[in-house]
């Protein structure tokens, strides 16, 4: 019930100072101040400056020179830009959903108490702890054509395995496959969601229908949609920035034959091999806009498919 006009006494009685809340408010701002400064210094200002650099010719040494949209035009006609954008899009479009589905499946499998539950959880989580560099190197060894153990095993089974990371046709798909290995965080986030479902809700669903898939589709999945949203957004943002695995496996040229050339690698190459800061910044702004649009789209559609309890945060 909004008060449109204050009652008459308001004019007579002076409004009191807001003391109690002011102390708390002052403390609130003070406690947040370092971070507010940090955000300004390390996020807000650089964001603006990136857009500026993107419109200059700038080789680190010397002053930036204003060139307008030239960098974007250069990008438009740069085959490496398009190739890497394509690779990255394919990578993100396949890796993220597949990873979420597997993680959800694992979480559903994990969501029961057995003597080995703790062990399984630990096993699924371990790949996250493996430094990406180390993990990639190990996979390069495992998937070595001919002499690597995976191919030896597959050949022994009478199959004709591909050359994995050395085959231009298979390399990107192999990279996607490898990206599925560290899915422990996603799995445990899902598991957390599953275990947050109140026991009585779950039991009520059991009473309503004896079929397990009924409960999964109508009760369980809707209740963990917030976790799906979380994993989806984070997953997309991170997969667009895939860098470490790509550069360890494909170097700065995306060997073999630019099959593993990722957007971030091209950006890195432009900035720190060719010292073309303007072009790199232009690439960064393109990434920013794409990620921004995607995130907004997801959040926009989220209203219709994410279930929120109470509606806070």
């Amino acid at each position: 019930m909004p008060i449109t006009s204050a009652p008459p006494e308001a004019a007579v009685l002076p409004r009191r100072n807001r003391k109690a809340q002011r102390g708390e408010a002052r403390a609130g701002v003070l406690f947040a101040l370092p971070w507010i400064i940090g955000m300004t210094l390390f996020v807000a200002i650089p964001l603006v400056v990136t857009f500026y650099i993107a419109q200059t010719k700038f080789q680190i040494i010397g002053a930036p020179k204003w060139v307008g949209m030239q960098n974007y035009e250069a990008l438009w006609s740069d085959p490496a830009f398009w190739k890497s954008a394509q690779n990255t899009l394919i990578f993100a479009a396949i890796s993220v959903p597949v990873k979420l589905i597997i993680a959800l499946g694992l979480a559903l499998l994990l969501n029961r108490a057995t003597a080995l539950s703790g062990f399984y959880r630990t096993v699924f989580y371990l790949p996250f702890l493996m430094p990406a560099v180390a993990g990639s190197v190990v996979f390069m060894l495992l998937l070595t054509p001919n002499a690597g153990p995976v191919n030896i095993a597959l050949e022994a089974m009478g199959l004709n395995p591909p050359d994995w990371l050395l085959d231009p046709k298979a390399a990107l798909w192999t990279l996607i496959l490898l990206s599925l290995w560290p899915l422990g965080v996603e799995t445990l986030v899902f598991l957390g969601g599953l275990q947050n479902i109140p026991k009585d809700v779950s039991e009520a669903a059991d009473l309503d229908s004896p079929k397990r898939w009924h409960k999964l589709v109508w009760i369980t999945l809707p209740l963990i949609t917030p976790m799906v949203l979380f994993n989806l957004v984070i997953g997309i943002i991170y997969s667009f920035q895939v860098f470490t695995q790509a550069i360890v496996i494909g170097g700065t040229t995306g060997t073999p034959a630019e099959a593993t050339l990722m957007y971030m690698v091209v950006l890195y190459r432009a900035a720190f091999r060719y010292f073309n800061m303007g072009l790199a910044a232009a690439m960064a702004t393109v990434l920013f806009v794409v990620v921004l649009i995607l995130t907004l789209l997801i959040f926009k559609t989220a209203r219709s498919w994410v279930h929120y309890e109470g509606g806070e945060t």
Binding site: I45, P46, L47, F240, L287, F288
Partner: peptide, 8 residues
Amino acid sequence: PTIVTFLP
């Protein structure tokens, strides 16, 4: 994304 603010 880190890179968006990184260069400056």
